[in-house]
Amino acid sequence: MSDDLERYLTSGPRVGLRPFTAEDAGEFTARAEESRELHRPWLFPPRTTEAYAAYAGALTDDPTRAGFLVCEHAEGGAIAGFVNINNIVRGAFRSGALGYGAFAHAAGRGLLTEALGLVLAYAFGPMELHRLEANIQPGNTASRALVRRAGFRLEGFSPAMLFIDGAWRDHERWAITACS
C-alpha cells in the first residue's frame, strides 16, 4: 500500500490525487463511456484514446492548466473522477477555473467531495494560488451542491457564458479564496 500512496501528489482517507498519464487512457475512456448518461448535458470528457491523449497532453504540457485524477484507495487506485484547474493566471491574480467530474461507479459516494478538498489544499498550498472559480450551469444541482459543501460562495450569473453541446449556456459563478 505504501508504494501506491507514494504515487499521489496528495492523499486523503479514501482517495488520492495524481497527474494524468498516457497509461490511463484505457481506464479513463472506459469510465467516461460508462458515465455518459450521468455527465450529459453538463460534461463531455474524452471517450476515445486519441481524444484522451490530446486532453491529458494539454493538462500536463500547458503551464496554465493542471489536471488531477481522483483514485480510490480501496479499489487499488481505480480512477473515480478528475479535477482540473484551467486558465491559471499567476502574478497578482493567482487564480484558476475548476472543471471536474465523478465517474458513474463513484458518483454519490462523497469521493469527489473529498477530492475537491484535497485540490483546494494543494492549489492554495504548493501551487500558491489565491482564488479558484467554478462556473456551473444553473440546472446542475449536484455540481452546485459539491462547491457549496467545499465552501464556495455564489458570486454572480453570466448569461451565455460558455459554448457547450452546441449552444451558449448560462452559468453561475462560484468562487473560493485561500483566506475564505
Rank of each mutant, 00 (worst) to 15 (best):
T29Y: 00
T29A: 00
A30T: 07
A30M: 07
A32L: 00
A32I: 01
A32V: 03
E33Q: 11
E34T: 04
S35D: 00
S35H: 06
S35C: 08
S35P: 05
R36Q: 12
R36V: 00
E37Q: 13
E37T: 14
L38R: 14
H39S: 09
P41S: 11
W42S: 12
L43W: 14
L43T: 10
L43V: 13
F44K: 09
F44L: 07
F44H: 14
P46T: 10
R47Q: 14
E50F: 08
E50Q: 13
E50P: 07
A51P: 10
Y52K: 06
Y52R: 09
Y52Q: 07
Y52A: 02
A53P: 07
A53G: 12
A53N: 07
A53T: 13
A53H: 06
A54P: 05
Y55C: 02
Y55A: 03
G57H: 03
G57W: 01
A58Q: 04
A58I: 00
A58R: 07
A58Y: 00
T60I: 05
D61S: 14
D61K: 06
D62P: 01
D62K: 05
D62A: 02
D62G: 02
P63R: 04
P63W: 09
P63F: 09
P63Q: 09
T64A: 14
R65I: 04
R65P: 02
A66K: 07
A66I: 14
